[in-house]
Design a protein around this nucleic acid. Structure first.
Length: 589
RNA sequence: CGGGAUGUAGCACAGCUUGGCUAGUGCGCCUGGUUUGGGACCAGGAGGUCGCAGGUUCAAAUCCUGCCAUCCCGACCA
């Protein structure tokens, strides 16, 4: 079909919109694909709609191909199911809540686990009905505290979410694998390079969870990638490479030393290095030789507070996100002055292993960073104001209740699989596959009868793809300084035909003929037939709009040729007019 | 929620410090003409509650107070 630029609802902007920072936002607005309509909400203009629909269609086809079935829920949802799952409150301020005229509570769906679970419960009750995979492509609503980066993080966005329902863990694993494989195909077709990283499965229990990230500087997710093997994980889930056990067991006995005014690691290291009696012969003391014991308060869902101590090498901070991921569903709170006051045995700035551990009088659970291996020696707090202990050897002089891999992750940290260095990168979360387990089925009462006539709780998986976000992610990955460069699979049009001659010459008829031939072959053609627009403007717009192929009917027409530009490869060839249509069609064959 | 910035035409911005005629410039838009291979030119035009409310003043885009909104960084969140 031919789409004429003279009538297309489109206005390109010469200047970048001031509020747009990231490339996708800037270009999608400037090229007339989207317009901001509300904070975190965007209007899709005709060209943008076409991209969105093509992305949707690819997702739909791959979901259908594995046997998933499409349904559609309202965006406006009743409160009751979300009360049952606890998410009416657990979701917090990010949930859009509203009331109807009678004061009845509703919400705008942020995800639809409850609705899918209830739908299956409504209709199915036998193991013979399983497995079943359902999905929808829907607008989701989240009251983000700070929408940003255009389509990348809105308060309203299009998401494909699917849910698998199985009788047992083996079935769940098969459902998970099928979705994971489908996702690989989806992103391949979208032309998006994605990295699959291990993610936390959180409170929902045990099993697998992986994220599909599109590596990108504008991304909000941080992940690590091993430079040697294929280990990848996000920063919550990453496990750190552990050094070999130390040989310090034969080291000098641990010794308490006076270290006045050293409440921080830095002041401690400076003092150790400045004192002749404490200075080390082999190397100066470094922050990494000290053991920092961080105490926090956990607040459990039942309201109980529990103190927890984490020992990490002194050159690292505890990463609160990683810690929260470890202790979920408990929340982490700072250890306040009042908490110190009620435990005089803990001296702020001088906390040491001597008083820590579930078996000690304080009863504070004590977890160690995995790098604190048996036989390693440390300088650490002596639990007295102005005193530290040196040569305190793990395993010989102190033990802990377990391991907590929650220290900050750094570029160059060791891979847990092969020990090589890992790189830190950023990415956009494009998809998430997740073995939900039985949480929702349990609270919402989704049971089926098994072959022995017994009630069994169904186990679920949930799988999401950010559809509107994918449009932005593709734009992030596929653009240059001139504009967008859509992959053929999602481009709003296949070919952009430009009339670049003078009115009344042969260029317009040549372009019209070509456009008609291409359209007859089933291609979507954008024809720049605007009157009174200079060639320079047409070229700039063609490059900005980003169709994968641009054909120019210009001064070459007098010599019987058209100019064919590959916007992706950046190449230009001249093709005889008579063969131009075939040339283009062949690319799409 | 904390920090920073900004709000003037569809877009990008100037004007505000030091209040003063009809609020300006570029792009875009309309009319006419000249142009036509890299965001053309000439002439004429349309388009503004200067974020909102209040205050000071003879006079407010400009000064004061409050509010709102948007953007950026962080916190939070997938």
């Amino acid at each position: 079909m031919i789409h004429r630029l003279s009538t297309l609802f489109l206005r390109t902007l010469r200047d970048d919109p001031a509020e747009a920072e990231v490339p996708s936002h800037r270009l999608l607005v400037r090229a007339g694909y989207i317009r901001r309509a509300a904070p975190g909400g965007y209007t899709w203009l005709p060209l943008g709609m076409r991209v969105l629909q093509r992305v949707e269609q690819i997702v739909r086809e791959e979901m259908n191909a594995i046997g998933a079935q499409e349904v559609h829920f309202p965006a406006l949802l009743p409160r009751e199911p979300y009360d049952a799952s606890g998410r009416w409150t657990d979701y917090g301020p990010n949930l859009f809540r509203l009331q109807d005229r009678r004061g009845v509570d509703y919400l705008l769906g942020p995800t639809h686990e409850e609705m899918f679970t209830l739908l299956v419960k409504d209709l199915y009750s036998s193991y013979k009905d399983l497995p079943v995979w359902l999905y929808q492509i829907q607008t989701k609503y989240r009251d983000e505290a700070r929408p940003r980066a255009g389509l990348l993080r809105g308060r309203e966005f299009v998401m494909k979410d699917s849910y698998s329902f199985d009788l047992d863990d083996d079935g769940l694993q098969r459902s998970y694998d099928a979705h994971r494989a489908a996702y690989v195909r989806v992103f391949e077709r979208l032309g998006l390079d994605v990295v699959i990283v291990k993610a936390m499965s959180g409170a929902m229990g045990g099993s697998a969870s992986e994220e599909f990230l599109a590596p990108c500087a504008s991304g909000e997710d941080t992940f690590v990638r091993c430079t040697s093997c294929d280990y990848r994980a996000n920063t919550e889930a990453v496990r750190i490479g552990v050094p070999a056990d130390g040989d310090a067991a034969k080291a000098p006995a641990a010794k308490v030393v006076d270290t006045p005014n050293t409440p921080t690691i830095e002041t401690l290291v400076n003092l150790l290095n400045s004192r002749d009696d404490l200075r080390r012969t082999d190397a100066p003391w470094a922050a990494g030789d000290t053991l920092k014991n961080v105490v926090v308060m956990l607040r459990h869902p039942d309201g109980r507070r529990e103190a927890l101590a984490i020992g990490v090498p002194g050159d690292r901070e505890v990463d609160m996100k990683r810690l929260e991921a470890l202790v979920i569903p408990a929340e982490v709170e700072p250890f306040g002055d009042g908490d110190f006051a009620s435990r005089p045995a803990l001296v702020k700035g001088y906390v040491g292993p001597d008083v820590l551990g579930a078996g000690k009088p304080l009863g504070i659970r004590y977890l160690l960073d995995p790098r604190v291996v048996p036989g390693s020696a440390w300088a650490t707090g002596a639990n007295k104001q102005g005193q530290h202990i040196v040569n305190l050897v793990c395993g010989r002089d102190f033990t802990a209740d377990g391991v907590a891999d929650v220290a900050e992750v750094r570029d160059g940290d060791a891979c847990p699989m092969c020990g090589a260095k890992m790189r830190i990168e950023r990415g956009i979360e494009m998809g998430h596959v997740f073995q939900l387990g039985r949480k929702y089925a349990e609270v919402l009462g989704l049971n089926v009868l098994d072959e022995k006539g017994k009630q069994r709780v169904v186990t679920m998986g949930s799988y999401g793809i950010g559809v509107s976000r994918a449009v932005a992610a593709i734009a992030e990955a596929a653009h240059d300084e001139l504009g967008l460069r859509w992959p053929r699979s999602v481009a709003p049009m296949d070919v952009h035909v430009v009339i670049a001659g003078k009115p009344g010459d042969d260029t317009a008829p040549a372009a019209e003929k070509l456009a008609a031939d291409l359209a007859a072959a089933g291609l979507e053609v954008l024809l720049d037939d605007r009157a009174g627009v200079s060639p320079g403007v047409r070229f700039k717009d063609a490059e900005l709009l980003g169709m994968p192929m641009i054909v120019i009917a210009g001064r070459g027409v007098t010599n019987g040729v058209l100019e064919v530009r590959d916007r992706i490869a950046g190449t230009t060839v001249e093709v005889p007019i008579a063969q131009a249509a075939q040339h283009v069609i062949a690319v799409y064959a």
